[in-house]
Design a protein around this nucleic acid. Structure first.
Length: 676
DNA sequence: GCGATGCCGATTTTT
DNA sequence: TCGGCATCGC
């Protein structure tokens, strides 16, 4: 298929900064892919001159795949397609000396950060979990806004003073552990590029053309990174849609779209408004709904896929009935229209809403897939093995140490651990280092000391072997897993042998990934063999997660949050729980942040290709109380001629009823006939 | 190591 | 109110 004129324009405009306002379903990934191909084929750019940045690993992988399809694999060698965080990690790795960091650093995930903060505050003050979570998010927000602990300390007032002090402590300890958190992966390169002209010029030369996907989701430090990378030359394309900005709660600054125009006055803006996904009526409703938000750029989606059925609004007596009706509707439609389960998606505001739908689907033996439940990396066995790997790479990683020092059981209990901890504190070294201090034997029982000693030996021995290239390092990890008898441990601790097998399968999966990454086989995931350190850090960035999910993408009804649905499309969509308090969510109503909720509704609506059904419950139990929720205001904002409210539907006549029955029987006949 | 009991939380979540 | 979890006691 040919590109439309606007898409063509977006692909070929390369003489200056370009903002592509890409409406939902307007083929933006195609534009990015074609543009990269164009740059390489026609514009004298080499693959290694170009970087394309996305937010998720999944998006990065998909984009890479599509470029490979267009250009052929060999022609793409050196092309950078990665997430912001991977790009940041790359910069840090290459500039590690300038940053004054030791090689072999660890990446802390949220739980590690939380654990560190807990440890920091434990003896000082009495704080609860909510406070710690608040602290994590405050620190994260400060980092995303590029505020150092010093800066915050100077300006903070009230409660923020304490948080700022904790922030400073937290940073100091991260340094001591030679660890970085996710936000650092953006912040550090940004600061480095800002303050170091040489490094900045080096990277500006290295990345001659930059493309950014989902630009509306960038936060302050990400935008600054973009600005520093493109420099004065300003050769870049950012693609985004302000109407699909639904992540401001985690620091995304949709105002970065406006900022772009200020910072680059020569900015060219191209709008992609033709939609290749949905029927016209769905788009009309989406357009009218989003018109209620103020806009920097006006945009109007259209399509030539036909007008389509009216949108429906269905009521359930209560939330169970709502779910049952949705499921019944799916069963009925699948039968009549001979569609697949995979054609249906149920979208909701909050994960907790999924439960009743899961139940209803299960009762009807309908296969379904829930996106966003417990992830592979949240599983205990994966975290265990990851902790071993992290400790191999960075022995000063106390969180990793604590997780596995007594796993499997080595007879090192809390008592002995406390002794080690005291020593570490007193000497200002990591726990692993404390284990090697002369005189530890006087503090611990002989058996415990012996265990600690052989643990240290094991880690050091394995780390040495793992540092050797290729086959050696892979073997070292296999030996480690065997040596600690992890499989036996799983069988001991799992409720059933079947569960243990399942978990061991996960471990083997992880092992396979690591060994793939360490050996330089040229498969689709990478271009070169990685060091163990690189592999571990990459895994901490969850690179494999989405690939695993793709594997069992059979014929299943899709269940996910509205947030998770962004970027996806389905022939038949149910948006459930369309009630005031749920969508818009109560807390957004309280904070007067209706616009983001409206964008969320907009994202949901524009997922649907053929048919869209809203559902709500007349009665809903919440925190033990039974509520009678109002229909969502967003339903009232839709053009009512295009919406069929179930309760306002005229009663069907006797003839219509007979006709329907006849239709159903005809459909059944057709189906039976074509089966044999 | 497992079941009972008690307590907390209840928006969205990637990296 | 309900479910997940963490901790406690056996």
């Amino acid at each position: 298929m040919k590109l439309n004129p606007r898409q063509q324009q977006a692909v070929t405009y390369i003489s200056g900064p370009l903002l592509v306002l890409a409406g939902a379903g307007s083929g933006k990934t195609r534009v990015i892919t074609e543009k990269i191909a164009h740059l390489i084929r026609r514009c004298d750019y080499k693959p290694k001159d170009i970087a394309a940045v996305t937010f998720t690993n999944k998006a990065a992988r998909e984009m890479k795949e599509r470029i490979h399809q267009t250009l052929g694999r060999p022609a793409c060698r050196g092309l950078r397609v990665s997430t912001f965080h991977t790009l940041g990690l790359d910069i840090i790795r290459r500039e590690i000396a300038t940053l004054g960091m030791k090689p072999g650093f660890s990446l802390f995930d949220d739980q590690d950060s939380l654990a560190l903060l807990k440890a920091l505050t434990d003896d000082e003050m009495d704080v609860d979990k909510a406070w710690l979570k608040m602290a994590v998010s405050k620190i994260s927000n400060w980092k995303n806004d590029m505020l150092s602990a010093d800066q915050v300390l100077r300006t903070a007032t009230g409660d923020d003073q304490i948080f700022a002090e904790v922030y400073e402590q937290y940073q100091r300890h991260l340094r001591a552990y030679n660890a970085l958190d996710f936000d650092d992966l953006i912040l550090l390169p940004t600061l480095l590029l800002r303050d170091n002209t040489k490094v900045r010029e080096r990277w500006q030369k290295r990345i001659r053309y930059l493309l950014v996907d989902e630009y509306q989701d960038t936060n302050t430090s990400q935008y600054q990174l973009v600005k520093l990378l493109v420099g004065e030359r300003a050769r870049f394309t950012v693609v985004g849609d302000d109407d699909q900005s639904i992540y401001s709660w985690r620091g995304a600054q949709p105002k970065n779209l406006a900022l772009l125009k200020e910072d680059f006055p020569q900015l060219e803006v191209i709008k992609l408004e033709q939609n290749y996904r949905s029927m016209e009526r769905i788009l009309k409703c989406a357009n009218i709904l989003i018109d209620n938000n103020p806009h920097l750029f006006v945009k109007r989606l259209f399509s030539d896929l036909g007008y389509g059925d009216p949108l429906r609004v269905m009521f359930g007596r209560n939330e169970e009935n709502e779910a049952e009706r949705v499921v019944a509707e799916i069963v009925r439609e699948r039968f009549l229209k001979r569609t697949r389960y995979g054609d249906y998606a149920i979208l909701y505001r909050g994960n907790h809403q999924a439960r009743v739908f899961e139940k209803a689907l299960m009762n009807n033996r309908i296969p379904y897939k829930m996106t966003g439940g417990q992830s592979f990396f949240a599983r205990a066995e994966i975290k265990d093995i990851m902790a071993y790997l992290r400790l191999l790479v960075n022995p000063d990683d106390d969180n990793a140490f604590l997780r596995i020092i007594n796993l499997p059981r080595r007879g090192i209990g809390p008592h002995n651990l406390e002794r080690i901890g005291d020593l570490a504190n007193q000497q200002q070294v990591s726990l692993f280092a404390a284990c090697q201090i002369q005189g530890l034997n006087t503090l611990l029982s002989p058996q415990a000391y012996h265990s600690v000693h052989s643990f240290v030996e094991l880690i050091q021995r394995t780390a040495r072997k793992a540092a050797e290239p290729g086959v050696q390092s892979v073997g070292a990890i296999r030996d480690l897993i065997q040596f600690i008898q992890y499989e036996e441990w799983l069988f001991e601790t799992s409720p059933s042998p079947a569960a243990a097998e399942m978990r061991m399968k996960n471990v083997n999966e992880l092992y396979r990934w690591v060994s793939d990454m360490l050996s330089d086989e040229d498969d689709a995931t990478h271009d070169e063999a990685l060091s163990l350190e690189q592999a571990v850090n990459k895994l901490m960035l969850r690179d494999m997660l989405s690939r695993q999910e793709e594997e069992d993408d059979g014929d299943q009804v899709q269940l996910m949050t509205l947030h998770a649905s962004k970027g996806l499309e389905f022939p038949y969509v149910f948006m459930v729980g369309m009630e005031e308090g749920l969508l818009p969510h109560q807390s957004s109503i309280d904070e007067n942040n209706i616009e983001e909720e409206r964008r969320l509704a907009y994202v949901g609506i524009t997922r649907a290709q053929q048919r869209l059904t809203f559902t709500l419950a007349r009665e809903r139990r919440q925190y033990g109380e039974t509520m009678r929720p109002e229909p969502s205001r967003f339903l009232a904002e839709l053009p009512q001629d295009d919406v069929q409210w179930e309760d306002k539907q005229p009663k069907i006549t006797h003839e219509e009823k007979q006709q329907r029955t006849a239709d159903n029987i005809a459909a059944l006949r057709n189906r039976l006939r074509s089966k044999d």
